[in-house]
Amino acid sequence: MISVSDLSTPLPTVLIWFIHFKPSSSQDGENTTTPSYQDSNFSDLDYSDFPVPCGKEYNRQFRSWFIPTFYSIICLLGLVGNLLVIITVLSFKRLKTMTDVYLLNLSCADLLFALSLPFWAANSMTEWVLGLVLCKAIHVVYKVSFYSSMFLLSFISVDRYFAIAKAVSSYRHRSQAMLLSKVSSAGIWVMAVIFSIPDMNYTTVNNNTCTPYSSSSDHLRVTIQGTQIVLAFALPLLVMCFCYSSIVQTLYQTRNFERNKAIKVILAVVTVFLVSQVPYNLVLFWTTIVTAQGGTDDCSYENSLLYAADVTQCVAFLRCCLNPFVYAFIGVKFRHDLLKLLKDIGCLTQERLLRSAWGRRRASGAMDTETTTTFSP
């Protein structure tokens, strides 16, 4: 008897040969004769049912230059912008309101997020060679900063809602505001860590890539991505829409000359969030559905989803370098403090600082002037 290991023919071919082989028997009851391998005819076999691997070479080439380029730009802008916010807040001791505390924590979260981007840029270019421990650590830092940033954006909108739409009732609890902001900020970081535990457990180095997913059809991927969509997009979106729509309604009822400017700032905040987050989460939602259905056999369709995910993800990550502009630098007092800091380190002239101070006095009638994140440009 000939074993499979004795054949020089590949195993699938041998199996096909055995399946299609039918022994012939003589009429006089003689023993059957097994035909040789060379006597078999494979010309009529149908190979269309055999799975063909989906080629992703063009997608890999695209990711090898697109993601590192955009991640580097986002990282650089995110580091500069958020460091300026942190240094300015700490230098001028601006932790006087709830929004100040949330703003400082938001900048810390975005800074951590920006610091993790170079590792993901390298992960998209070459094999992951930094080991499993660092793979898990970087992924946890990324997810914790991601969740905490989204939660903080929600809490900032809630604080603005009570400061403007519920100004009378919030003034009564003003003495407890700082304690509440610190406790809630600590709670946000704790929740972010808790929601990152699944990534901490399942992140591994698969096919020389740092990833929490074993394959594109992994059902664990459905759970992780579904949780991210609900907690880090849908929930903050609902909170922000309710709070800012209520604020706009309150502002329309006032006759303050800064009303239109305040509404424009709110629209800018909401627009940045929607433009950066909606496309990515729509693609993420659709890929989650495809994964839950066991993947797709259409190679072109699968590659299109990969391209869409890469592009929209880079747009979504822009939030870490845009947040300082829409939440901090747009504030009159914060902008003045930043210019003063730049003057102290020699990056700004005295004349420019005086012009900024004159513009600040002209805008002194802005609403909520005791907050660094004022709704007045």
Rank of each mutant, 00 (worst) to 15 (best):
I164F: 12
S304Q: 12
N323S: 10
T34I: 15
K22Q: 10
V205D: 06
L238V: 14
E258R: 07
T227E: 00
A328H: 01
W65F: 09
A328Y: 02
S145P: 07
C321Q: 04
A309V: 09
M1P: 10
L342P: 02
P279T: 12
K93F: 15
T99C: 05
G55Y: 12
L274N: 09
T227S: 00
Y171N: 06
T33G: 02
N281T: 00
V275Q: 08
K96A: 11
E127S: 15
L305R: 00
I266T: 11
G359N: 12
L84H: 04
A109S: 15
F375M: 01
Y244L: 09
A366G: 09
R259M: 11
F325L: 11
E258V: 03
G131K: 10
L231E: 03
L339F: 06
D310A: 14
D218S: 03
W128S: 04
N201P: 01
R160A: 14
L134N: 02
L106F: 12
F146L: 10
C75D: 04
C135R: 05
F155Q: 01
T204M: 07
R255A: 09
R335P: 00
N303R: 13
L90D: 02
D344C: 13
S145N: 00
V190W: 15
V265Q: 07
G346F: 01
P10V: 01
L115K: 10
A357L: 08
P68Q: 13
K143L: 12
N207G: 06
N105G: 13
S364R: 13
V315W: 10
A167L: 02
L117W: 14
Q293W: 10
S25D: 04
Q313L: 09
F113G: 05
K343P: 01
C241P: 01
L267Q: 05
L7D: 09
L77R: 07
R352D: 09
T9I: 14
L79N: 07
M178F: 15
S124M: 06
F151C: 10
Y161W: 14
E351S: 14
R174P: 08
D49W: 09
L238I: 15
T250E: 05
T13P: 00
S376W: 08
T296V: 02
V141A: 11
K340Q: 12
V52A: 03
V332M: 05
D6V: 06
I247V: 15
V270G: 02
S376N: 15
F285D: 00
D159W: 13
C210A: 09
R174D: 03
N323A: 11
T211C: 03
C108T: 05
T312F: 13
L306W: 15
F18C: 06
